[in-house]
Design a protein around this nucleic acid. Structure first.
Lengths: 154, 154
DNA sequence: GAATATCGGACTAAAGTGGTCCTCTATCTT
DNA sequence: AAGATAGAGGACCACTTTAGTCCGATATTC
């Protein structure tokens, strides 16, 4: 199954709660754990990662917590996933990557060079959606999504 | 890291070899293992899955093997990934899915309902690229990919 | 200086994945 | 008819990744 990690999932969820607050609001790990219903240790872990990734700013000490470093409209889902899960690359076999040097396929690989465009396509899809849009249930940045079309696999 | 499984990777690679051949060519597991440099048992496993998924047709018995059921132009990468890895869903929390019923977030989740559009975006990106395009190094269905631009993460 | 938060990292357990192997069935060749 | 070849199907194991927890240290406020 192609999917993002649960940590990235939590990350988006948590940032979503920040997005709902006024700009500079500080929220603590404890408070966010309650709001999100994610276990406190896990919430802390995710917050730490988000802070390290520069998406949140931490305020230490009593009455401390975290706050957004940017406006929700300027944070993309792709960015959050990168911070939590690392670079978005659908496969290891991509040009410029070290792995390619010991790729047994190299000269015969019929799809060599095409992974890049696939990765780009996914990255673009993920970067087209902002945190602000995620928290706003009516906005529709991607395409037609009018309520109730069926979702076939694929 | 967000990525597809190695099996899906192999699947695309193997189908790529079929795509290079004339339409009805039959290739055996042994032969494909040699061409792709993927270990024979693994090659077999992938081929079986591709056949079960309807992308390949098997010919049993001596001088048997597999052949494409469709033209490479009509097979999308998204389809291959679905066959190998299951449905493309970036998160478990999506409407219409059973998991949503016991989602502790439900009423408070700030991003509820927005996952769908994200999944759709990725599915579309993956379905826009066909097997034929993957094997043809010059075609460019997605966007600018002129040889050598650097790839920043994201 | 006591209480409250984050920081950083170690650690465990569970799940998923990659990969192999074995038995059975179908088909072709001789 | 018999033997050889090739796929079907599934069990199985090892390894990696991930989820999740916990602890000691540091910073800040009251």
């Amino acid at each position: 199954m192609i999917r993002i990690s649960k940590q990235a999932d939590y990350g988006i969820l948590i940032l979503g709660h920040f997005a709902k607050e006024a700009g500079e609001t500080i929220l603590s790990a404890r408070e966010l754990a309650e709001r999100t219903r994610v276990a406190p240790p896990m919430t802390s872990k995710v917050l730490k990662n988000l802070a390290r990734g520069g998406l949140l700013e931490s305020v230490r000490g009593m009455r401390g917590g975290y706050r957004l470093t940017r406006h929700p409209e300027d944070i993309t889902i792709g960015e959050i996933i990168v911070v939590m899960d690392g670079p978005i690359a659908v496969t290891e076999c991509a040009p410029d990557e070290p792995a390619v040097s010991d790729c047994a396929q190299e000269p015969w690989c019929p799809v060599r060079g095409s992974w890049q465009r696939l990765n780009d396509a996914i990255r673009e899809a993920l970067n087209r959606v902002t945190l602000a849009e995620m928290t706003c249930p009516v906005a529709d940045p991607v395409g037609s999504f009018a309520g109730h079309e069926d979702q076939a696999d694929v």
